[in-house]
Measured scan of single mutants.
Amino acid sequence: MASQGTKRSYEQMETDGERQNATEIRASVGKMIDGIGRFYIQMCTELKLSDYEGRLIQNSLTIERMVLSAFDERRNKYLEEHPSAGKDPKKTGGPIYKRVDRKWMRELVLYDKEEIRRIWRQANNGDDATAGLTHMMIWHSNLNDTTYQRTRALVRTGMDPRMCSLMQGSTLPRRSGAAGAAVKGVGTMVMELIRMIKRGINDRNFWRGENGRKTRSAYERMCNILKGKFQTAAQRAMMDQVRESRNPGNAEIEDLIFLARSALILRGSVAHKSCLPACVYGPAVASGYDFEKEGYSLVGIDPFKLLQNSQVYSLIRPNENPAHKSQLVWMACNSAAFEDLRVLSFIRGTKVSPRGKLSTRGVQIASNENMDAMESSTLELRSRYWAIRTRSGGNTNQQRASAGQISVQPAFSVQRNLPFDKPTIMAAFTGNTEGRTSDMRAEIIRMMEGAKPEEMSFQGRGVFELSDERAANPIVPSFDMSNEGSYFFGDNAEEYDN
């Protein structure tokens, strides 16, 4: 993207840094990872977990959730003011799984939030270390993106479920800051804005008074975040219109849905970061690795190297396929839920299948599930090659597409044709070009129609051997075009429920 120079890199967003050079960025990201790792080690000690239990991804998720809940100030305040039966607002906890007599047992633990905050700050040299908290939120978000298709949420806001490739980060909490905003897809931002506008339509006082002023500035800020994701002048001009509207209503909703559809071809720039579970960072720190000293990046080879040398386990339900569970977590670790499966298959070195073909449910185990038949197995999170994460949407291309997802959002900077089903997408653009945004709409449609099938995206960008740390010898991959490109292809993934 041309304006790259004016933006802070995501590592800076990730670490609240002012302008830093590459070495400083690597050190501050490393410091953040160190903090998460030290916190995780301490929690495993508190909970008396064995090494194996500490490497269980379900335990990692519970521990991450506990610290996120302990620092969720708004919710904590709300819980104190609106006490609900049987919930102690000062405590947080969740299921911890232990191996007892050759069987997995679930144990519900409860801790004072104050105590968890103390352990977290102690692991982070006394700081609140917001960057580390956001990092864990993005890992949870990436896992949700890989596990669930947001059909219901899309339909509720009037969008087409086939636009799911635009929904990265749709389950990120509001408090995820600049680093969170960077990884949100165009569809996620559109959905947040539509929800806001709908509230304004239904509630006369939404934009009024002292609160209304705050609401208005939040609305304009979200519009600017979305505008910054678009790469064409016409899309940005249309966002200006939406932002400046005196009284946002149905016309703005129409414009936003139009823009979301246009992003299936004229893709937005959305950041991709490899955020790993805390149970990967903990053992690495415990083994003596100093992330701050060595430096770390979320968008280069580092996460690949770390996963190459990590042992992570997962509980497996009786009829689940461990290899499929591994694929789910591998995609989440690489922030690749909406990437082209052919690119992923090449990088991973084994075939990556669409969601609907995987015999696996989510990673988390519900409290009512029976533990008797639970097994555990090693997650295979290694890769054959590594590639640089991208934040450009890439230019655009036609490809055989599917009944489910009709476009992709690249996660890796790797040369390819970008699949999208042009006739299906263009069919949504018939007729409606009147109104105050008509010239911009016409211009956007013209650009979409001009998108050429034979153009290559990320020209000359390749993948790298894991021994090639400096990215000196790019390998331009070859793809098996007979395979499906979309992950949520004609899909039956479970729906995400809060």
Rank of each mutant, 00 (worst) to 15 (best):
N59K: 13
S170H: 09
A337D: 05
Y148A: 05
P248H: 08
N309T: 15
F39V: 09
E339C: 03
G282P: 01
D290I: 03
S176Q: 05
P354F: 05
P453T: 07
A218W: 08
R199W: 06
N224H: 14
G435M: 06
G17M: 15
H135C: 08
I316H: 09
K351E: 07
K184T: 06
H140C: 09
W104R: 09
S165Y: 03
K351R: 13
I316R: 02
N370D: 11
S335R: 03
I445V: 13
E454L: 14
G394S: 03
W120P: 07
E24P: 04
G93Q: 13
L56I: 12
R317W: 09
R261T: 07
R441F: 05
P173F: 03
M374N: 10
K90W: 04
R470Q: 00
A336K: 00
W207H: 02
E64H: 10
I119V: 15
N125K: 05
M238P: 02
I347F: 13
D480T: 10
A411D: 00
F458H: 11
L256A: 14
D88W: 01
E107I: 03
M456G: 15
S60F: 02
Q459I: 02
G17A: 12
E254I: 10
A131W: 04
D290W: 05
Q364P: 02
I257E: 06
G462K: 03
I116S: 01
E107Q: 03
G462H: 12
M481C: 06
C223R: 03
H140Q: 14
I36C: 05
R348V: 06
R261W: 10
V285A: 08
N473I: 09
L276D: 02
E454R: 00
K214L: 09
L358R: 07
Y219H: 14
L341E: 05
Y52F: 07
N395H: 15
N250K: 09
S274I: 07
I41K: 00
T62C: 09
M238W: 01
D88C: 15
Q42L: 03
S345R: 08
G187N: 00
R152N: 05
M426P: 01
A70D: 14
M456K: 14
L49S: 05
T151L: 11
R461L: 05
R384H: 13
V329Y: 02
S217F: 06
T350C: 12
S269D: 11
F489D: 11
V363I: 15
A336R: 11
F458W: 14
L306V: 06
G54Y: 07
K91C: 11
R208I: 03
M159R: 04
A129T: 13
P161W: 01
T430M: 06
E320T: 11
F304G: 10
D128I: 07
W139C: 09
S326F: 10
A181F: 15
V242S: 07
T15Q: 04
A427D: 01
N483S: 01
R106A: 10
R152H: 12
L172H: 04
C223E: 10
F458Y: 15
V270S: 12
E443N: 09
K7I: 01
D160A: 01
G356L: 10
S274G: 11
L79I: 14
F291N: 00
R221A: 03
L379Q: 05
V463T: 10
R384V: 08
L133G: 03
P453K: 12
L328V: 13
P419L: 13
G393W: 08
K7E: 02
E114M: 06
G209R: 06
G200N: 07
L143A: 05
Y487S: 01
A218I: 08
G177V: 12
K77V: 07
R391W: 11
R106E: 13
P423N: 04
P83Y: 02
I316S: 09
N76G: 03
E484Q: 01
Q231D: 01
N59C: 04
Q327T: 03
Q398I: 08
F338D: 00
E244D: 15
E369F: 03
V270E: 07
V183E: 07
D497L: 11
R156H: 09
M481L: 11
L266Q: 10
P322W: 08
L256P: 07
Q122N: 08
A493F: 05
D203F: 01
G126C: 14
N247C: 15
D127N: 09
T437V: 01
T130L: 12
G30T: 12
I36R: 10
E455N: 14
M374W: 07
L264M: 08
K113H: 10
R400F: 04
V363D: 10
D421N: 15
D421M: 12
N395R: 14
A284L: 11
K351S: 09
L315K: 12
R246A: 03
S60H: 00
Q4R: 06
A218C: 12
N319M: 01
S262R: 06
M447C: 10
E469L: 12
Q4T: 09
C275W: 03
P248R: 05
G404W: 01
A263V: 12
S50K: 08
E294I: 02
S217P: 00
L466S: 01
F464W: 00
D372A: 09
S407Y: 06
A129Q: 11
W139M: 11
E73V: 15
Y97L: 06
E339L: 04
D160N: 12
G209H: 07
A451H: 14
T390G: 04
S3I: 10
P83Q: 15
I316Y: 01
Q12G: 02
R391D: 05
F346I: 09
V476R: 03
T360G: 07
K229Q: 12
G485Y: 15
V414T: 15
K87Y: 10
G126P: 01
G126E: 10
K227E: 10
A22P: 10
F464A: 08
G462R: 15
A2L: 00
G212S: 07
M1D: 11
T45A: 08
V100A: 15
E73K: 13
N59D: 14
M374Q: 13
L418A: 01
S345K: 05
D34Y: 07
R75T: 13
T396W: 12
R441A: 08
S367Q: 10
K214M: 13
N202K: 11
M66V: 09
K293T: 06
G362M: 06
F230S: 00
Q399D: 04
R152M: 05
Y40Q: 11
M43L: 14
F488D: 03
M66W: 09
D34E: 14
R117Y: 11
K273S: 08
Q231R: 14
D34Q: 12
S486Q: 03
E81M: 09
N211R: 00
P303N: 04
D480L: 02
F71A: 13
V414Q: 06
F479C: 15
A70R: 03
I265A: 13
G185R: 09
P95V: 12
F420N: 11
I253M: 14
F338I: 10
A123N: 08
N334F: 02
G228L: 12
M66Y: 07
F346P: 03
I347G: 05
E375P: 03
R355Q: 10
A387Y: 05
P354N: 13
P248Q: 12
N370T: 12
M238N: 12
E14V: 05
K357Y: 12
Y111V: 08
M189D: 01
L266G: 01
Y385V: 13
S438M: 11
T378W: 00
L110E: 04
Y10A: 15
R382G: 11
E294G: 13
R236F: 03
E80N: 13
A442M: 14
A131Q: 12
E115R: 11
I365C: 07
N395E: 06
R102I: 01
N368T: 14
R243Y: 06
I253D: 09
F488E: 02
I225V: 15
R74E: 09
Y313M: 07
T151W: 05
A451K: 08
S60E: 05
F258R: 08
V109K: 12
I316N: 13
I41Y: 09
M426Y: 00
G393R: 08
I257M: 14
R152T: 01
D340R: 03
Y313D: 06
R162T: 02
K77Y: 00
Q149Y: 06
I388G: 07
R400H: 12
N432L: 15
E380T: 03
F230C: 13
R267S: 00
S376A: 11
E18I: 09
E484A: 10
Q4C: 09
R416M: 07
S413E: 01
T215V: 11
N224W: 08
N250E: 00
K357W: 07
E320Q: 05
K293F: 02
T424G: 01
P474E: 00
F464S: 07
L79W: 04
E292N: 03
F206D: 01
K305V: 05
M137R: 02
